[in-house]
Write a protein that binds this DNA or RNA. Structure first.
Lengths: 337, 337
DNA sequence: TCCGCTAATGTAGACGTCTACATTTTCGCG
DNA sequence: CGCGAAAATGTAGACGTCTACATTAGCGGA
């Protein structure tokens, strides 16, 4: 803990202090650290001793400043407290970190104003790329990112015509796929339980995909809060004339299933139940839940790769479509059963 | 999109370019931006026009370098793909962001070597504080953080004697509390389902809390994988002589419950089932799951506050104990029933 | 022994912003 | 009309690291 004033200016030793102790210039120290082969054996040893003596730690800010790189990518997500986003971020972080990038996370609560505000913070800390969720954003966001020369990419979406690259899946098609499964089983009168529409463009797209279902299909849309409770409460608007329930999220489906179980209503005997997301527990439920698999982990990996490639090559980011897939399990059955 | 070579050096306009266009020095521009009241009205206007013209965006790195601050805090968590940690991070981010700090997240997969590696990356990008989960770490970590003059705080734990400040709860006490609930209902022969012990010191502590349960209590420890499947599979080692099952995580409890439901075993009639964590769905299960509430959100908030206070005041971080609490619901019943 | 080449090290200035201090301008008031 | 204080602006150098270029040292060969 010796406080050698020789090599301490404002608390921390600098590369110059190390040089002074080792009897060389700062440039030599820098070289010893970054390209050791250009420094003689003996000098290198003296320098390392000096580093140990001074407790020198490179100043990351000075480094970043001179290189102009922070190796940092920012992600804006509506929430962390939802398996979809945390799974996505997990995959994203893993891949980014494999390529030596750091991930800064900011939560937007689905609020475009807050999103803009947090985007500013991320930009003003020097992120090199910015990942957002969905397509509806404050108009200023794009402009902001462009001014900062930071490239933007949207996820949870695939829409090649959009004003920014998108990496994700087609929510409309996915919703159609889910519905087709139920109609294929003969269901014609179907409850659709979904979360709030405002400030959730994924839900909006999914609903859009359902709207032109066809004349002989009766859809009853039930909006509720996007949580387990909401799934249960939505059932108040359900009656047995609707032979199937399509939930636009597995959380809602589980909420509904638990309520049905509590009420003694048999799935799929009394009603078919289908989710959307394919979350971890879904396949273990009783009965195992039919759902729609979203390629969340792939999306995380692909997004990380795209951003890293872009930062390396300078090429613009291309949109990538990932595919959704039915996971047919026991919670859905033919209408007659 | 005019490419005025006058004010472009390496692609981006600098504060000096703005000054040149506005006909003032860089210092005046800097002041106009940071302390506008010290600059005359007319000059300010000219400067803002110049900023618009040049598309100037302050370089965050230079700023950080001169101020020596990044306003960034790092968090190392075992995984993001688990509600506990993502809930924690959500609360953490919310509070940090309220105090204008950014959050960098790194995933350790519960591996101390990887943790150390990622800690290095976080330090070398300039985090001002580092939040880790649990107490078992690579020894180098503490040393590293100290050298970088970055303060460390451990969460999910409360242990005032530890070598670093801890903000969390007492896992041993919590486990005892859970067990006491079951023994209080008369259960004497209890299965304890838990996840992998290695590299999970929270599980270790919880088990430690159970070990001196008392002579008349028979505990059957069943280790399994920490996921829904694991909870179900663990039941292979359970038989009806064990009148209660204590799962050291709600994920395991849900996995077990779903399997019990599938097998037609009634909870709590045939067996009492208790979880640990109190995750979102638990109260909606059929039957609602008795669990042990962990103060995860409080922990996130408290940790953020502690770190921010520390960074503001320079005072060392003090350990904080948060309390756990039983959430008694219908999945547990007296042994006779 | 000296030339010339290579290896090793030093010098100087750049990166973009901030700020203490110096200087200039402004303006009120006698 | 000029003095002096206050307001406005400029100058210079710091922050810590990197690197192109300049310089010195070292060494083998003739």
């Amino acid at each position: 803990m010796a406080q050698r004033s020789t090599f301490r200016r404002k608390g921390r030793a600098t590369i110059i202090d190390v040089g002074r102790v080792a009897g060389v210039s700062d440039a030599t120290v820098s070289r010893a650290l970054n390209r050791p082969e250009t420094v003689s054996q003996t000098t290198r040893e003296r320098i390392h001793a000096a580093i140990a003596e001074t407790g020198y730690v490179p100043n990351p800010l000075a480094k970043a400043m001179v290189s102009g790189r922070t190796h940092t990518v920012g992600a804006l997500v509506p929430t962390l407290d939802h398996a979809i986003f945390s799974k996505f971020l997990h995959a994203l972080e893993t891949e980014l970190s494999a390529q030596s990038y750091n991930l800064v996370v900011a939560v937007t609560e689905g609020d475009n104003t807050l999103e803009l505000e947090k985007a500013k913070k991320l930009l003003s800390m020097g992120v090199e790329g910015l990942i957002v969720s969905g397509l509806s954003h404050n108009g200023e966001l794009l402009e902001l990112a462009e001014r900062a020369a930071v490239s933007l990419v949207a996820t949870s979406y695939y829409e090649p015509g959009a004003s920014l690259p998108t990496i994700g899946y087609d929510n409309e098609v996915a919703a159609k796929l889910a519905l087709a499964h139920l109609t294929g089983l003969g269901h014609r009168n179907i409850a659709v339980i979904h979360g709030p529409v405002s400030s959730n463009d994924r839900t909006q797209s999914r609903l859009k995909g359902l709207h032109d279902a066809g004349n002989d299909i009766d859809l009853h849309f039930i909006q509720t809060s996007l949580d387990y409770r909401g799934g249960g409460e939505a059932l108040l608007q359900w009656d047995r004339s609707m032979t199937a329930i399509l939930c636009l999220s597995d959380v809602l489906a589980m909420g509904a299933l638990f309520k049905l179980q509590a009420d003694g209503i048999q799935v799929p005997h009394d009603v078919s139940l289908m989710g959307f997301d394919n979350m971890d527990p879904s396949e273990f439920l009783t009965p195992p839940l039919t759902s729609l698999k979203l390629p969340i982990e792939d999306m995380g990996k692909a997004t990380a790769k795209a951003v890293c490639d872009h930062l390396q090559s300078g090429e613009p980011i291309a949109s990538i479509e990932l595919h959704t897939q039915l996971a047919v399990r026991d919670s859905t059955a033919p209408v007659g059963k």
